[in-house]
Design a protein around this nucleic acid. Sequence first.
DNA 1: CTGAAAGCGCTTACAG
DNA 2: CTGAAAGCGCTTACAG
Lengths: 339, 339
Amino acid sequence: MPHAADSGRPTMRDVAREAGVSQSLVSIIFRGAPGASDATRRRVQEVADRLGYVRDESARSLRSARSTNIGVVFQTRQPFHSEMLDGLYTATVGMPNRLILSAVSEARDEAVAIRDLVSYRCGALVLLGPRMPEEELIELGGTIPVVSVARRCPSAGVDWVVSDDAQGMGLALDHLVRLGHRHITFLSAPVSPGGREREHAFQDAAETRGLTDEVIIARGGMTEAEGVEAAERILSLPELPSAVIAFNDRCALGVLDVLVRAGVDVPGEVSLIGFDDSQIASRKPILLTSVRQDPMSLARFAAERAVQRMSPEGPASEPRGTILPVTLTIRATTGPAAG
Amino acid sequence: MPHAADSGRPTMRDVAREAGVSQSLVSIIFRGAPGASDATRRRVQEVADRLGYVRDESARSLRSARSTNIGVVFQTRQPFHSEMLDGLYTATVGMPNRLILSAVSEARDEAVAIRDLVSYRCGALVLLGPRMPEEELIELGGTIPVVSVARRCPSAGVDWVVSDDAQGMGLALDHLVRLGHRHITFLSAPVSPGGREREHAFQDAAETRGLTDEVIIARGGMTEAEGVEAAERILSLPELPSAVIAFNDRCALGVLDVLVRAGVDVPGEVSLIGFDDSQIASRKPILLTSVRQDPMSLARFAAERAVQRMSPEGPASEPRGTILPVTLTIRATTGPAAG
DNA sequence: CTGAAAGCGCTTACAG
DNA sequence: CTGAAAGCGCTTACAG
């Protein structure tokens, strides 16, 4: 009387029967475990393909002693998150670990996204730019291995990987100073993940270079719209800064749009630098000079660390925080200071 | 000797023991099935929350007679897909159906993305702008209920939902004609999902309005970069068209960037219309006139149809294709024809 | 390699 | 409501 879960999908049992082997052997083959000859592997694989067999992930995951799934929380509408997703998929090609995605969007907050991943037996979580309070992040890290990407976490229980904002700011400022700029405005986004760090990095870098009095920190943001507003405020000033560093590329794009339309020559009158070096930065005719955070490296690191933490042999205690180097991609929005 | 799957996560059994009820009852409560008083529901829920219980989705999904999971294939780097993801999450709030995401990216093709969803026991698939050959799409539809979004499929075995391109083109052309435009260029993207339909819609709409001789179909594309190239070709012509309709907003943005920088007055010299009315279209200072495809409506329809097809009582045969109406959002890139 | 077995955490009927 | 039971499709050890 029980059920009729019969979706018609073939099971391992079907493959085994059809190939004339035991079900255990099929399992061995699909897990890539030792215990089958190459010839048998090929034959069974062929039968499976012919039947259209797809291993049931729910059953595998339920029965497995260790979970090897990596849960990924990302935000829709964040192009940089999309690039990191690409990187995560690339980084896990050929690995037995599967990526389980969970999006944060208007109708779905981070807590729900995380709970969903837990319910799918993820062995570790990769959180892209998590926005939850720090206490919650730390608490979560006590439950399950967590890798926070693009946000630091001062706890021994949470791994994190960020780009080197201090280095990035140094590169940006050195580039500008070399071009003769001194009146430089940084458009900050203190409420975003990693926003405070980037602001401090700017302050420190300016100080080190003796620019403290000539430098301004102004309200920016992490979206194009906020960049637009910031640019409008800048245009209303009695004097334009000679260079602007934006919190990220999206903000820089908003600024650029407004400046170009206002007839401001970029970089003739104002130089502009973004952060991320996202796909759009390299696009003609934008050609934005930008501090390059490599989404691929961030993703690869996050995936590797997640896998390490899941495995029993993994390093249980090791530096939890990692800072990846950045580079400056110089394009067409920076040039010699006017005058 | 079996395993040590003990992740420490509490199970239904733990909740039952702690709450002093049977495991069956906890299951009833978590499924929202009848058979428990409100008071008991509250009490058990409290215990579950206290223990940090999260229902195991692998087990639920494995044991359930019918799968209610909706698998979603989307493309990273497609902002419109992100908007539809938001819509899908919004549309499924409060429904028992869960969304399982699977991305198509550089390192991961559509076939792999789909296979992954099958392995997670999805009861139906929602494919955003599928790019596979039509035969494969039809074959897939024979295996599992499929809803193709933004691409038609002439088969009784596949549901699809698209925006009304014919209506959209009509709205766009009427708007332009009313403003006095006759020399109108359409930037096409024939290889993209739904690309051919949109091109035909333009041709038909132009014909209906007696514009056949004054209208041009040129190479466009679905990315900003292709829009940039198209705009550069347009600028090299002896005479500018009086209006341009782009395949989508991304293409239109590339065009707009180039025109603005070339000192072309938009809409003074050239009017510009996009398709999608994506978030970025409404952004200052872009303010792109665009044919509005509502991602929310597309998503809601896709989710509802997927649920219908999964349920045994669902309409087994009904119109499979649905065309949703569009609107024209008029902003700042369209104006009276010059002269 | 085979074969029989246990069991992951649930859902699902069923008798009380 | 309870309680005992079967079983989803796998993984995992174990004796042969």
